[in-house]
Amino acid sequence: MNRDAALAGAAVGVVLVALLASVALPGVLADPTEDGPVRPGPVRISEVNIGSDDAQVRGGTVTLSVDTRIEHHGNPTENVTLLVRAVDSESGLVETSRTVDVGTLRDDAETAVTTNVTVERQGGYRIETVLYQDDRRVDESGKTVSGLEALTPAYARSDVRFSETNALPPLSFSVARADAGNNRTTLELAASLTNGGDDRSEDLQVQFVLRQAESNIVAARTTAGVGAIRPGRTATTTARVTVPRDYNYYVDAVLLKDGVVVDSARTAANLDPTKRISVNETETEVELRVEDFEGGGNGGGERPTEAGGEPTDASTPGFGPVVAVVALLASALLARRWTQ
């Protein structure tokens, strides 16, 4: 047999075997990367930013915007989800949580995922973000926010405040009229307001309340409207009240915007010539400690003594040292008499 003919026949045989195998076992000669499993590319959390929109600040709650940056490289990664939860920093309890379906990540880039979580407007929280791929945790991160009570609700937001300068006090008063016969004094009250914002102020009122210093009884109350104040300007709002003379009063002024308290100020009106009061009082919060009261309500007979001393029975008086010496001498004399 010719050698070339033998080689040709062998080649034909290999081709026939390959064709028969492809028919009998489909996919044997297919590209393994075409239908076979592909390892997904790595994903991770690269950055987390937390912010709040002023419009989302309410009286009892605030909505935080959590912006999570997810970094992806390599082959497409399917079934990516992100869990965002707010954990109370004091109790450790989960306040709220949300799960976002990110889907499939294909590009070698970062993907921004924004999630809104609503929490109470007080205290602080740890915002935790957990990244999953096919329900398997692959990365996590977290940040802490605190002082949420300092955020001003949208309905109470105003750039107008009582002035705080030595030359222009926030509150002042003058005697407009004194009626000795009726024992009354009319005071003219003045509130100084400054607009520190960029817009004209509107819908503002000042409520004045006068309380007698010793009794805390409200002697007078009145409300005055505030005209529009241009940005950076200071305006004065006045009102008159009549109160009994020869008393001292605390004057409280409350700045209101559509019925919501925006700011407050206080001064003292000393109309009593023999006494004076001041508003420079300091209030200190004292933490209640339960152990300070333990055993204090049993009405026991012992009373405390100075350091190093022994407790003394408060219900029965004891014998003094003089009585003890007299008793000892009497016992000795009596014993001597019996021996004689």
Rank of each mutant, 00 (worst) to 15 (best):
A10W: 11
A10H: 06
A10Y: 14
A10R: 10
A11N: 12
A11E: 15
V12W: 09
V12Q: 11
G13F: 14
V14G: 12
V14F: 15
V14M: 14
V14C: 12
V15R: 05
V15N: 08
V15K: 01
V17A: 15
A18H: 04
A18Y: 04
L19F: 14
L19W: 10
L20M: 13
L20Q: 06
L20D: 07
L20V: 13
L20E: 05
A21W: 11
A21P: 00
V23S: 12
A24L: 11
L25K: 06
P26I: 08
G27P: 03
V28N: 05
V28S: 08
L29Y: 15
L29M: 05
L29G: 10
D31V: 02
P32G: 04
P32M: 03
T33Y: 10
T33L: 13
E34F: 07
E34I: 03
E34V: 05
E34W: 03
E34M: 07
D35Q: 03
P37A: 02
V38A: 08
V38D: 07
R39G: 06
R39E: 15
G41W: 05
G41E: 09
P42H: 01
P42C: 00
R44T: 12
R44V: 06
R44W: 14
R44Y: 10
I45Y: 03
I45C: 02
I45L: 14
I45E: 06
S46H: 04
S46W: 03
E47Y: 11
V48C: 00
N49I: 06
G51S: 15
G51N: 08
G51Y: 07
D53V: 05
D53H: 07
D54Q: 10
D54A: 05
D54V: 05
A55P: 00
A55D: 11
V57F: 05
V57D: 02
R58P: 00
R58F: 12
R58E: 15
G60A: 15
T61M: 09
T61Q: 13
T61F: 13
V62M: 07
T63F: 03
T63Y: 01
L64S: 02
L64G: 04
L64T: 04
V66E: 05
V66K: 00
V66M: 03
D67M: 04
T68K: 00
T68V: 15
T68S: 12
R69A: 14
R69K: 09
R69I: 06
I70Q: 05
I70R: 00
I70G: 01
E71W: 05
E71P: 00
E71G: 01
H72Q: 03
H72W: 01
H72K: 07
H73A: 13
G74P: 01
G74F: 02
G74C: 01
N75T: 11
P76V: 12
P76G: 12
P76E: 15
T77R: 10
E78V: 10
E78C: 04
N79M: 11
N79S: 15
N79I: 06
N79F: 13
N79C: 02
N79V: 11
V80I: 10
V80R: 01
V80C: 08
V80W: 08
L82I: 10
L83N: 08
V84F: 02
V84R: 00
V84L: 01
A86S: 11
D88C: 07
D88K: 00
D88H: 08
S89D: 15
S89P: 04
S89C: 09
E90P: 00
